[in-house]
Nucleic acid binder design. Sequence first.
DNA 1: CTATCCACCTGGCGGC
DNA 2: TGCCGCCAGGTGGATA
Length: 275
Amino acid sequence: MPELPEVETVRRGLQPALEGQTLKSVILRRPNLRIPFPKDFAKRLSGVKVERLGRRAKYLLMHMISGDIAIIHLGMSGHMTVLEGDIPEPGKHDHVDFCTANGVTVRFCDPRRFGLMTLTTEEEMENHKLIKNIGPDPLGNGFNADVLAAALEGRGSPIKAALLDQKNVSGLGNIYVSESLFRSGISPKRLAKTVQGARAEKLTRAIRDVLNEAIAAGGSSLKDHVAPDGELGYFQHNFNVYGKEGEPCPTCSTAKIKKIVQSGRSTFYCSNCQR
DNA sequence: CTATCCACCTGGCGGC
DNA sequence: TGCCGCCAGGTGGATA
């Protein structure tokens, strides 16, 4: 699930547990996720205080006072759990524990292991290969209709594929691309380069609104999850089109939501409302 | 450079 | 019940 809103919700949920706290130990229960852990991963983080938690696109960034930064990606199935008091035995897919000096454990579980964790530093981060090609954050100041239009200019791929490409705009995934295109009335099949001017304006606004609403929804459900063994990472949202194949379009109610496959991934849309 | 395809994994679900 | 194929929120790297 984790797209920008989920990662942002996880970040906020972990802040009270980690920011300002010293990591007593980091336990790795396997040598790799999608990529190997750096050899000195646990060692470089242990005994060091967490300065702050950040986010870049769908990457969580744990900034340490040492100047090291842990880069964490949740992949498709990764989630975090905040544990305190009696820490339960780890399950089959509980691959990493971050244990703080004051007795809290942040546990990372990821059945499919598409997630990853690696290290960089404050000096190196902007040049890190996982970070350097990431485009503007849609909720940040660097994102507006002109920036989006410029990124899409000359692109011959469908707008659906262009929005999934993290270097055009960062943080969108399969769900929120469908939702954003629905809200802006743009067909997922439309060529990216034709999304200019008013359409780019509309899409920009739709992306921002969809993401902000999802974060607000995650923030409210977070209340139920932040208690001792709350899981962070999977939340329910009310989608207009994603997963709604065959249901009447919530806008026109005459057409049914269609499901198509684009570059190997499902897209949901209303062929009546989206052009 | 751009666009597309594939691999990386496990688990859950529907169909037979 | 059991087995099988299919599907799932991501993305970096290979390929053309």
